[in-house]
Design a protein around this nucleic acid. Sequence first.
DNA 1: CACTTGAGTTATGCTTCATAACTATTCGCC
DNA 2: GGCGAATAGTTATGAAGCATAACTCAAGTG
Lengths: 252, 252
Amino acid sequence: MVTQQDPDQTLPPARPSRRERARAATIDEIKETALRLMHEHGNTDLRFSDIAREMGMTAPALYRYFADRDELLTALIVDAYDDLGTTVAEAREELPVDDLPGRFLAVAAAYRSWAKREPQQFALIFGIPVPGYVAPEEGPTTEAAKRAMGQLKALFSDASERGLLGKPLIDDVDDALAACAQVEHPATVPHGPPLPPETFQACLQCWSSLHGFVILETYGHFDFLPEDARDELFHATVRQAAVTSGFPWPHR
Amino acid sequence: MVTQQDPDQTLPPARPSRRERARAATIDEIKETALRLMHEHGNTDLRFSDIAREMGMTAPALYRYFADRDELLTALIVDAYDDLGTTVAEAREELPVDDLPGRFLAVAAAYRSWAKREPQQFALIFGIPVPGYVAPEEGPTTEAAKRAMGQLKALFSDASERGLLGKPLIDDVDDALAACAQVEHPATVPHGPPLPPETFQACLQCWSSLHGFVILETYGHFDFLPEDARDELFHATVRQAAVTSGFPWPHR
DNA sequence: CACTTGAGTTATGCTTCATAACTATTCGCC
DNA sequence: GGCGAATAGTTATGAAGCATAACTCAAGTG
């Protein structure tokens, strides 16, 4: 992450002091280096010594910035959620707001291609909690998770607002789940009323379905299919997710 | 656990010698201890010293049985696939062969409950390829994966044989995928003709959908839902998977 | 200028993976 | 029974990583 050096010293100090900026830059560099090493090695290992060497430092110096391995890991996980959420949101907003099928596909495709592009970050979020790492209850990670997941929900909110939302194929909803539809994810999407319960359920099923495909593909369980077959399977999955959940979809 | 055939013995039905039995028992005990420790600690860590201490041995002794950590890990992964496959198969065969919806639900429920019961083994299979471990191409793991996945395919074969298979909701199939339907997974299920391509696709989508739910739930991404809501969501997912794939399902 | 702050270093301890070298028990065989 | 080989264990040792402590040094501040 590039930080600007401010040549102008005469101005009264802005919020981030010079030291704070340097510190933030170092933190960024540590995280970037960690990600790059994970990319290069193709796993989610994290060795302070490697990171430090790569940065021309010694390992103990990193403890000035992260209390221990878990803290760095947590930061990377939060960043990953953030990155995923941003990527998906940008894809969503690239298409006109009234092209709901296009946006649905764009969201799904962005989710998938992000996972393919950043398998390590994807693994940090959705793989097993990395050995030795336990997700803090109600920590920053769950917060970020909701934000990313909210992108999908936003689509349904939009469709609902426009009255374009059909009835999901499976529309009998459990009471407990119906209750959740009213209270959960309140702040994830600024606009839109709470979803009807059966749509909330359909939304979760969309996520399941999409996520199932993506994680199976990312971890190689679809390797027996050639790439174009996987692409087609993905599009079929997206179509089916939309159609079965009552999401508007063009007559094919 | 499969015991190695001894090529030195003259008879093909080589009975395992006393030593071989002791060795096999030790190998089993190592794997069981490893699993138990993973269970107790709630992660997929693997420390030779811990395992050895638990068994009243010293760490280096374990190297008599496994060349290194990865080899033990691989063995555990293979066992996990095996266990999953067996568990699902048993659930399937517990119901009469003509109760196809029942069997479908049983397979799905077994998959889910196994993941809940053995989250560590589940993680070994479907989590990130464990740090430092790379799945050997076409190794024993992919083989075992196909066997487990084959249980689902068997259901569709049964239904197809009886002419009970409807048309999947999404039934336009890519050529490449259609080709796979003919050739892939040939030996996974002894009985049954190759599936029609659109059903093969639907079968994969069922797996995606089911797996997506299970992995999200297992890794805590559905923790915001109360347990009964998750149960209902699961059943809705199963219903939808069956109905959209043309699998016979009782009029609800 | 002396003083504080914090980023970095070297030095050190602990733990784990892994190997080497040694001991002792079990098994096969005469 | 007793000998020799194979194998299950041991202790000893080294390399590497996580983590902390103690020290150095430079930049910013009264």
